[in-house]
Amino acid sequence: MRRLRIVLAEDSALLREGLVGILERAGHEVVAAVADADALLVYVARELPDVVVTDIRMPPTHTDEGLRAAARIRAEHPEIAVMVLSAYVAEAYVPELLEAAPDTATSGVGYLLKDRVGHVREFLDSLDRVAGGETVVDPQVVRQLLGRRRDDGPLATLTAREREVLALMAEGRTNGSIAEELVVSEAAVRKHVGGIFAKLRLDPASDRRVSAVLAYLRGA
């Protein structure tokens, strides 16, 4: 694990301290821990961190300040990875987050429920992946998206295994990580992915496959 420079925004002092504790114990450097979106933007511009970790609901209106700040950071600093934490599942946030970055963005983006932070190892692993340019979407959000398109349509033609693979793909896992999770070979995963893309008529050459899969699931 590489040592990341992190700017953290979370309005609840309790959670802010908890997060700082977890991140620092893992060996990361929290260069700033702030309580609102304005301060977040100021510190991001000043510190140019590797990763931004931000809550969605923050003062003054307690709606989606963090999300809007995240979108702005993605647009203005495509090299900074952003991990957004939410207290509840709202798939409506997903496109706002994924579509905010210019196509040239190389940094990763993540959307996790705050509960995941309690699973410290997995949370830190997700953070690493986002810092490494990957996309991470909370499994619960994916579950909801998958649940939506269950009637007829091409999704119904997927095998049970293919659905598992699709869900993990939507969470942002790589083929290697999916293979590990399902205890199969990477070649087998590649075969499933090919099958899924063919059935859903997605572009197999897409280098943003998470976005493509999520967009498909949202019915966009």
Binding site: S12, L15, G18, I22, R25, A87, V117, V120
Partner: peptide, 24 residues
């Protein structure tokens, strides 16, 4: 709703964080 969300819920999340750290 706001009270539950900003009060109890935050505390429970903090609790899961502490317990998660303790597991390590």
């Amino acid at each position: 709703e706001r009270d539950l969300h900003d009060g109890v819920q935050q505390r429970l999340v903090a609790l899961t964080m502490t317990l998660g750290s303790a597991e390590l």
